[in-house]
Design a protein around this nucleic acid. Structure first.
Lengths: 203, 203
DNA sequence: CGCATATGTTATCGTTGTATACATTAGTCT
DNA sequence: AGACTAATGTATACAACGATAACATATGCG
């Protein structure tokens, strides 16, 4: 019925060894090297050394393969965040943006809206775990507002990453600073409201 | 020859009337109705009633057509922002997010990183104008920090819009509120730093 | 008028996603 | 062990797409 994964102890190896993983690897490489549009099932199959129809034994369609790549991306992003979290929330934000800048196509795949996240269970699970990691960073905030805080913080860093990646900041805004300094400067503009403010969001 | 339209003004009309505009129209419709992947040069040509090669007289390639669609999107976004700006910065942020939610595919095209903005002069110009409109909303802020403020505010609303569009907020975070209320709640979490803070960005 | 050129068409190529029928291998059951 | 069954990979095919080139036609200017 359902297409199989791991029916034996580990990821069993049949003809290829582990084609599923091989395809994810190849697709990830294509994504990093040639961008989103450069990822094709056929090219991935080629690089994995199988026929162009073989991938369909492991992925329902192209989108399913991309979803698997994105899921791994969320795992990596989660790692980066966990590693930076102890150094404070500014460091956490910087780490987030750095991840996006270092793997732009992967980040675009994860968040660009190309994938309908609701239709890929594994992807959804990975994304959720990452989000929970972020919420945990706000453990010092009252529980009822923690969710909104986390949402605001995530929006901020995600938006900054996205605008940087799409090159939407005019040169004037950068003022000659390197990207890291610019990120710090922008993130530092923000303070989180401590009281249940319902007023304006800006000065 | 079924459609005979005006044919004198500026952008004169040759065979079709104004194929360039017709293609942009058709592509915009496709984008709204079938999403990014549903926009093809051939289908746009079909809907404009011309052969599949005709578009190449007006657009270098598919990306150029998409860039034209996106440029118009920036104009519309600019209008929405100008209209909301007098009602304060929270209203401005809400209007921004509303635009993204109402035209998700268009917004994704404008900001999703599919277009390399640097390579389409007209697109770049339109985007820049929109940004300048945003910066103007921060005219009460000291000039040297205005750019960073605007960048932070833009990041916030852009990130929120993107995460909403990609359905990245777990249901728990929404707490049953409708989207507008959620947007207001999230935006209200943020206050802009008034002093040249270089400390942390969160509590 | 006559002609250069902007515009549109036809034909064609290579690539892709996907479906179907077939072949082979791996793991299981007796 | 040997055969059966499901998992896996292959061969072939098709329609849609982006792109290019060769050709056709209308437009407006001299």
């Amino acid at each position: 019925m359902s297409t199989s994964t791991a029916r034996k102890p580990r990821k069993a190896a049949y003809h290829h060894g582990d084609l599923r993983a091989g395809l994810i690897r190849a697709a990830t490489q294509l994504l990093d090297r040639k961008g989103m549009a450069g990822v094709s099932l056929r090219e991935a199959a080629r690089r994995a050394g199988v026929s162009h129809a073989a991938p369909y034994r492991h992925f329902a369609d192209r989108e399913a393969l991309l979803a698997a790549v994105a899921a791994e991306g969320f795992a990596r992003l989660g790692e980066a965040m966990r590693e930076a979290a102890p150094r404070g929330s500014l460091a956490l934000g910087e780490a987030y943006v750095r991840f996006a800048i270092e793997r732009p196509s992967l980040y675009q795949l994860m968040f660009g809206g190309v994938l309908r996240i609701g239709e890929h269970a594994e992807l959804r699970a990975h994304a959720l775990r990452t989000y929970e990691g972020l919420v945990r960073a706000f453990s010092s905030v009252a529980a009822e507002r923690r969710g909104e805080m986390a949402a605001a913080a995530w929006s901020l860093v995600h938006g900054l990453a996205g605008l940087l990646l799409a090159d939407h900041f005019p040169r004037a805004a950068r003022e000659g600073r390197d990207t890291e300094a610019f990120v710090r400067a922008v993130l530092s503009q923000i303070r989180f409201a401590v009281r249940p403010a319902q007023g304006a969001a800006a000065a």
